[in-house]
Simulated scan of single mutants.
Amino acid sequence: VSTSMTINSPAAMIFAFYLAVAQKQGVGFDKLRGTLQNDILKEYIAQKEFIFPPRPSMRIITDMIEYSANEVPQWNPVSISGYHIREAGSTAAQELAYTLADGFAYIEACLDRGMDIDSFAPRLSFFFNSHLDFFEEIAKYRAARRIYAKRLREKYGAKNPRSWWLRFHSQTAGCTLTAQQPENNIVRTAFQAMAAVLGGTQSLHTNSMDETLALPSEKAVKIALRTQQILAYETGVINTVDPLGGSYFVESLTNKMEAEANRIFGEIDSLGGVIDAIEHGYFQKEIADSAYRYQRELEKKEKFIVGINEFVEEESKVDIPILTISPEVEIQQRKRLAELHQSRNQNEVEKSLLEISEAATSGKNLMPVFVKAANNYVTLGEMVDELKQHFGTYEEAVVF
């Protein structure tokens, strides 16, 4: 079993709960396999679900990468994510460059900690968007692998070939789905998935047609799953590695994407690196400008979206099932949390919170104390509140 967790700011604590369950079930950490998203840099850049300022957040992630390398060797402690950067409105080249720059920042933080590059780089993974421009997306993936392999070998001195591999997951672009004529989203998802496969993705998520309207229904999820299965079992696209390699057009696009990414790396470096660029508002402004340009192109019909600015059906009705969630789910969870507070050993809770406080100030790796706290039923909110006292919280500057 491999477990995937889409969690970021509190990822270390959620991981600690998972490890505590493993201990209670008698499962060794060396047997655990899975992936945490845990990419805090892209939160500051695009998704905005951060808690602490960038520098202490980087310390927590470095703690997790180090702990995983030593204690949970089959775990991927971070999935460096361009998906949300693209969903926020970036171009393909910006998604590529910002994602890899984030990855290089994590690598450099680990190297500054004294870790050997080959002790942790093979477990780093990436997560990209698959958007509308079919060949541009394929070129983006090909350029990503090329840039990453060169940098790991030539700058960071990785000797293990597995450290050079850019292993990545792809998800079709949620921002391209439309509430109008939602069945069209099935087709969009299919060709976006095909681009990811032709670009060499290791794993794939296909969005459901109704995700602009609600959480997906069972029917919509099944169609999304069947889309992947048709690609895998019927089309033959899995039979050849890099099937478009050698195409003049694709190779030219790949070279262009690599050159543009390297130009953007230069801009980031000139600001002092990723964290300084975040604090300067660089990424936020660049993405906002790109999103604005894209919207203007749609409004001027320089780009087309079927059902939105062309082939519009003014009186069309949504005729697909929509999923609804019962409020009873929240009620039951609140009840369980209240019962936990009553039944746990409060003295052990207080000791664990003190240990978290001491580790936060001393620089000691936080993961062991998080795992102990999880075993003592310290809640996520309590751990976060304890860290806030030392790390503070973050509010980004407004940029125009």
Results as ranks from 00 to 15, higher is better:
residue 78 V to M: 06
residue 51 I to S: 03
residue 186 I to A: 02
residue 145 R to L: 13
residue 82 G to N: 01
residue 396 E to Q: 13
residue 231 L to K: 01
residue 322 I to D: 08
residue 276 D to Q: 09
residue 327 P to C: 09
residue 196 A to D: 01
residue 278 I to C: 12
residue 366 L to P: 01
residue 254 T to I: 01
residue 8 N to M: 13
residue 7 I to S: 11
residue 118 D to T: 01
residue 15 F to D: 07
residue 314 E to K: 04
residue 110 C to T: 01
residue 200 G to F: 07
residue 242 D to P: 02
residue 264 I to P: 05
residue 33 R to Q: 14
residue 274 V to W: 03
residue 374 A to V: 06
residue 95 E to S: 05
residue 351 K to F: 15
residue 389 Q to D: 10
residue 275 I to Q: 03
residue 85 I to H: 02
residue 198 L to G: 06
residue 189 T to G: 09
residue 371 V to Q: 01
residue 90 S to M: 11
residue 269 D to N: 14
residue 143 A to K: 00
residue 306 V to Y: 05
residue 240 T to R: 02
residue 312 V to Y: 09
residue 352 S to T: 02
residue 31 K to D: 15
residue 326 S to A: 14
residue 72 V to M: 08
residue 139 A to V: 01
residue 265 F to W: 03
residue 65 I to P: 01
residue 249 F to P: 03
residue 212 T to V: 14
residue 347 N to K: 10
residue 70 N to D: 15
residue 117 I to F: 03
residue 73 P to T: 08
residue 378 V to I: 04
residue 70 N to I: 11
residue 164 W to A: 09
residue 44 Y to N: 05
residue 266 G to M: 07
residue 203 S to Y: 08
residue 59 R to W: 14
residue 356 I to N: 02
residue 115 M to T: 00
residue 48 K to D: 15
residue 174 G to I: 10
residue 279 E to P: 06
residue 12 A to D: 12
residue 1 V to Y: 10
residue 142 R to Q: 07
residue 225 L to I: 09
residue 4 S to R: 06
residue 298 L to E: 11
residue 215 L to S: 04
residue 90 S to H: 04
residue 238 I to W: 07
residue 55 R to K: 08
residue 149 A to D: 08
residue 234 E to A: 07
residue 135 F to Y: 15
residue 318 V to C: 11
residue 114 G to S: 12
residue 40 I to T: 12
residue 362 S to W: 08
residue 84 H to F: 13
residue 68 S to L: 11
residue 93 A to R: 01
